[in-house]
Amino acid sequence: MTFLREYTFLWPALVGGLALGVAGALIGIFLILRRDSLLPHALTHVALVGVALGFLTTRWPLLWALGVTVLAAFAVLEIRERAGIYEDTAVGILAGLGMALALVLASVAGSYDVRLLSYLFGNILALSASEALLAVALAFLVAGVLASRGEALFFVAFDEESAATCGLRVRLLKFWLAALTAALVVLGMRMVGLLLVSALMVIPGAAALEIAHGLRQCYLFSALFGALSVLGGLAAAVLFNLPPSGAIVLFSGLLFLLSFGLRRLK
């Protein structure tokens, strides 16, 4: 505790990081089961378009990123259903086009420099108190959605066709999932950078799915692994002077290896 009193700048990183780590890991389960693990990766590239638009208009890059990313997430859903394109093809096209457009816009805005690069790699230690609070609010929203419609969301992720025949509003549920994913991607981009945010959303969920016996355990392990990744990564970053985003994702990778091994030992 003395350590935390001394390093007060760590508080927003710790609070915001934990909130995003847990919320991202929980949403990650649904993405994996829908075989949509690459969606956050593609969305991060589109989020960069929003950031570039923010540079171009000289204000609110994160708000721009949020708007553009949510729209892109909805667009992916529509393209898949209406255009009959393979899911990974839609994701590949979106990621490529997003990054290309972001680079062009940033160049036009004259911000093709270190400001843009800061979004590529993120910096959790630079998280402001208001960003940390936003992350906590988002985590509560994720928890609320899962508490009220978690079973329905899981049904849609696991067996969409049957879910639709039960009278569930599948389209609405998928939009909820897409919107939450987009919001987590944008805030996660500030934290670990757009190159690593998808890993933080997918790896803890994948680790939980290796060892969970039942849905409740799956949620529990996923949240735990998300939190441990942030805590372990931050601690390693501070103690060994490592880049926090890399340390956090590497720590989540270590947890995945442990649960992968544990399952094989069973």
Partner: peptide
């Protein structure tokens, strides 16, 4: 990877 128990799978039929 599907972590569902038998009871949880059946309960999905009541999700709506």
């Amino acid at each position: 990877v599907v972590p569902l128990t038998v009871a949880e799978t059946v309960a999905l039929g009541l999700a709506a």
